[in-house]
Computed example of a mutant assay.
Amino acid sequence: MTQRVELATVMDRFAVDGLVTEYAVAVDDGDWEAYRRLFAPDGRADYRSAGGIEGDADEVAGWLARSMELFAMRQHLIVNRQLLFGVLDQDSGDTARVRADYINPMRLAGQDGTSTAPDFVCGGRYVFRLVRTDLGWRLREVVVQEKWRRMPPPRQEPSAG
């Protein structure tokens, strides 16, 4: 492998890693326009394993915008990233696949504000499929594979004395 090819590969790795980070930040910040811009024109997302929907980026961004109103704080972390590059016959450019684990603590909206501890935590694995476009790397597919979740305990009603 030449130094030029090695440098290009390193640059692609940084770009793909940056895109995955931008994805997490867009979801956590509720920036749905930024979320939409991360996807290729044919990009899709599948949140069904977490109780969500599967659809194109615009449909899923709308669903996320409504769903995430429940949570005043979101901070999901995407770790253990495994990256593979490839070129597929049906693609006009380079492709990549990232498998990465996530943990997502969230704080329910409407709480008293005295605690910053998350009420809801879930974790699992993402599979990102990316394609190089004229605008750079973009998401072609995001699949969420939720493996676990911890919900807040049921609220106890005060007992009538």
Rank of each mutant, 00 (worst) to 15 (best):
M1L: 15
M1D: 14
T2I: 09
T2C: 13
T2F: 03
T2L: 11
Q3R: 13
V5P: 01
V5L: 06
E6R: 11
L7A: 13
T9F: 00
V10K: 08
M11L: 13
M11Y: 14
M11V: 15
D12N: 12
D12W: 01
D12V: 05
F14K: 06
D17W: 06
L19Y: 04
L19I: 08
T21P: 06
Y23I: 06
D28P: 02
G30V: 09
D31H: 07
W32A: 08
E33W: 03
Y35F: 14
R37P: 04
R37V: 05
L38W: 13
L38P: 11
A40I: 07
P41V: 11
D42S: 15
G43S: 09
A45L: 00
Y47K: 10
R48A: 14
R48G: 11
S49I: 06
A50F: 10
G52R: 03
I53E: 08
E54D: 14
E54C: 13
G55N: 01
G55S: 13
D58R: 13
D58W: 08
V60T: 07
V60R: 02
G62A: 15
L64H: 15
S67R: 10
M68K: 07
M68Y: 12
E69M: 09
E69G: 13
L70Y: 00
F71E: 05
A72V: 08
A72E: 05
A72S: 12
A72H: 04
I78D: 01
V79T: 13
N80P: 07
R81S: 02
R81H: 03
L83I: 14
F85G: 00
G86V: 07
V87Y: 03
L88W: 02
Q90L: 11
S92Q: 15
S92Y: 03
S92G: 14
G93C: 05
T95F: 01
T95S: 14
A96H: 03
A96P: 14
A96N: 04
V98R: 02
A100V: 03
A100P: 03
Y102K: 03
I103Q: 09
I103T: 08
N104G: 02
P105S: 12
M106Q: 11
A109S: 15
D112L: 12
G113L: 02
S115V: 14
A117S: 13
G123Q: 01
Y126F: 12
R129E: 04
L130Y: 06
V131K: 02
R132N: 06
R132F: 04
T133W: 07
L135I: 12
G136F: 02
L139G: 14
E141D: 14
V144N: 01
V144L: 10
Q145D: 11
E146Q: 15
K147Y: 11
K147V: 08
W148A: 12
W148I: 08
R149Y: 07
R150V: 14
R150A: 10
R150C: 07
M151E: 06
M151F: 10
P152V: 10
P153H: 03
P153Q: 06
P153D: 00
R155F: 09
E157D: 05
A160W: 09
A160V: 08
G161Y: 05
